[in-house]
Each structure stands twice: as structure tokens, then as C-alpha cells.
């Protein structure tokens, strides 16, 4: 019996060896292909294009790396930034879609819960009396406030933006100078990017039928101007500049403060840096 088993056993071994060899080759091929593809799939966005003076002959995007700072200790919640943004960027004039917004955090004495609202809250809209001009209602005037602060929010123009990763057409992209933009002539309006953004920075523009978001006023910054929200802020709570210029306001802001970013655990590497925010802010 034993001798009879030998040929079939060796044949089986030979077959398994061949199978192993084939599997190794196939594995190597798949592995090599995966190694080639993985870096580009893993949300590490490639620059849209290289070029000397691009996008215009007056502006070379390889020479800049824009960054944004928010000093929450300075913000007074006047919401001029929100109104300026809406006016400058033709943002839909309703109380539900914003390229930038301000959050109010209030701790009341004796309470263990933080109360958070923003300008779109129905109480605040009622106080402003309009869906096109904004103000925070004085809703805590009869309460004893223990601690309160405002936090301006906007697109984080992430280094590894989830929105760019999921866009099926490439209509949303990250520029060489670090700004995440939407090509509204190419966007199909699937809203996958709106879902993917961890920060709620995107919305669907019902007038243009495309995704919409903060551009850091790209049309202004490429001409040497400040974004509209930075321009109108009366207290200097919003800071903008070129991170490649070590003396720019943003470089000095990052250097002189202990800054943090929102939802760092997402791995998106935001480029909006915060000072003076509390543990509840995300």
C-alpha cells in the first residue's frame, strides 16, 4: 500500500510546488501593480499641473503655499466675515448654505453641557430678521454665562482632502499653491464630496447645480489681495498669508502660537490653524 501511494504523493507534491510557484508569481505581479497604484489612491493628491507661470502670466502658483489662521480669542461674533463672503463670492442668499460660518460656544454656570449655535440657527435668524444678514441673538442675556467664545469656520483646504479623493471626475482639485477648488463647468453634481468632507465645509449650489465651497477668495489672493473675510474682520481674528514667506502673517501666526487643526485624526492635514479653541470644537 505504502509503495502504491508514493507516485501519487510525489505527483501531488509537484503539483503543489507548481501551484505555489504560480501563486508567488501572481502575488508578485499583483503586489507590484498595487505598489504602483496605492500611493495615488491613498488620498495623496497630485498637483493638477506643473508649469512656470501658471495659471496666469502674472501669477506663478509654484511660488506660494497659502495658509489660514483663526485666532478664536479675538473673534467677537459680528458675522461681517459671513456677509462679506456671501457678497464677494455670490454665495446663495439663504440661511443654510455658507462658505464660512461662525460657531458660538457657551457654558452656563452650574451646567455641564456646552450650548453651540451658529448664525443659521432659527433663533438667530429671527433676531436678524432676515436670511441674508446675520447676527447672533442675545439669547443668554438672562443666564449666567460661565465661559463663552466664538469660532470662525471655513474650508480647511486640506493637504489630503477627502473631497478631492472621492470626486469621480476630478472637477474638484488641489492647486499647486495649496487651495482646493471646484471646476463648476466640469462638476456633475453627485455630491459625493459634500458627504466626504468631515468638516461640513461643502454644500450643493442649487442655482449652479454643482458643489460649492470656500476658495480662500482665489480670485483675490492671486492678485495680491486678502480673502474677503480676512479683509473685513474688525479684530484680526482671521489671518491669511503665504507659508513660503517666513515673514508673512500666517507664518508668524504659526511660529508665535501653539496652533492646532480640526479633527487631526482624520488624516486630512488641514491648512487652517486655530488658536484659542476648546475641547468641544471639532
Amino acid at each position: 500500500m505504502k509503495n502504491d501511494d508514493q507516485p501519487s504523493l510525489s505527483a501531488r507534491r509537484a503539483f503543489l510546488a507548481k501551484l505555489g510557484g504560480a501563486a508567488t508569481c501572481a502575488g508578485a505581479a499583483v503586489g507590484a501593480a498595487a505598489l504602483g497604484v496605492m500611493p495615488s489612491v491613498a488620498a495623496k493628491t497630485e498637483p493638477a499641473a506643473d508649469g512656470a507661470s501658471f495659471p496666469t502670466k502674472d501669477y506663478d502658483w509654484t511660488k506660494h503655499q497659502w495658509g489660514f489662521g483663526v485666532d478664536a480669542t479675538k473673534c467677537i461674533g459680528c458675522l461681517r466675515c459671513v456677509e462679506a463672503c456671501k457678497a464677494e463670492n455670490d454665495v446663495p442668499r439663504n440661511a443654510h448654505q455658507f462658505r464660512t460660518w461662525v460657531e458660538r460656544y457657551v457654558h452656563l454656570e452650574g451646567g455641564d453641557q456646552v450650548h453651540i449655535d451658529s448664525q443659521q440657527d432659527p433663533v438667530n435668524i429671527e433676531a436678524s430678521g432676515s436670511e441674508t444678514t446675520f447676527r447672533f441673538a442675545n439669547r443668554y442675556k438672562d443666564a449666567k454665562v460661565y465661559k463663552a467664545f466664538f469660532v470662525p469656520k471655513l474650508c480647511n483646504h486640506c493637504t489630503h482632502p477627502s473631497c478631492v479623493q472621492v470626486c469621480p471626475t476630478g472637477a474638484t482639485f488641489r492647486t499647486e499653491d495649496g487651495v482646493v477648488l471646484v471646476d463648476e463647468t466640469y462638476c456633475i453634481g453627485c455630491r459625493y464630496c459634500v458627504q466626504a468632507c468631515p468638516y461640513g465645509a461643502r454644500f450643493f449650489n442649487e442655482e449652479k447645480h454643482v458643489a460649492d465651497k470656500c476658495t480662500w477668495c482665489y480670485h483675490r489672493i492671486t492678485k495680491g489681495l486678502q480673502p474677503a473675510c480676512v479683509e473685513v474682520c474688525p479684530v484680526g481674528a482671521r489671518i491669511f498669508g503665504d507659508q513660503k514667506d517666513k515673514q508673512s502673517p500666517i507664518s508668524l501666526f504659526i511660529r508665535n502660537n501653539r496652533v492646532q487643526v480640526l479633527k487631526a485624526e482624520m488624516g486630512n492635514a488641514p491648512n487652517v490653524y486655530y488658536v484659542g479653541i476648546d475641547k468641544e470644537v471639532n
Partner: peptide, 28 residues
């Protein structure tokens, strides 16, 4: 249902003509 949902259904083929390879949706 996807075409009815798109903001610009006439551009639906953009994702096929120029698929963005990191997008889970592009290969659909």
C-alpha cells in the same frame, strides 16, 4: 436613480471619459 439625482446629468459621462482614479465612484 443616479442620473436623476445628478446636478448635471448631461455631464454624467465626465466620470467615464476622465475618471478620477482615486474616486470610488469613478469606476462605476
Amino acid at each position: 436613480p443616479l442620473l436623476l439625482h445628478l446636478g448635471h446629468p448631461e455631464r454624467a459621462f465626465n466620470s467615464t471619459i476622465t475618471p478620477h482614479l482615486t474616486s470610488a465612484m469613478a469606476m462605476f
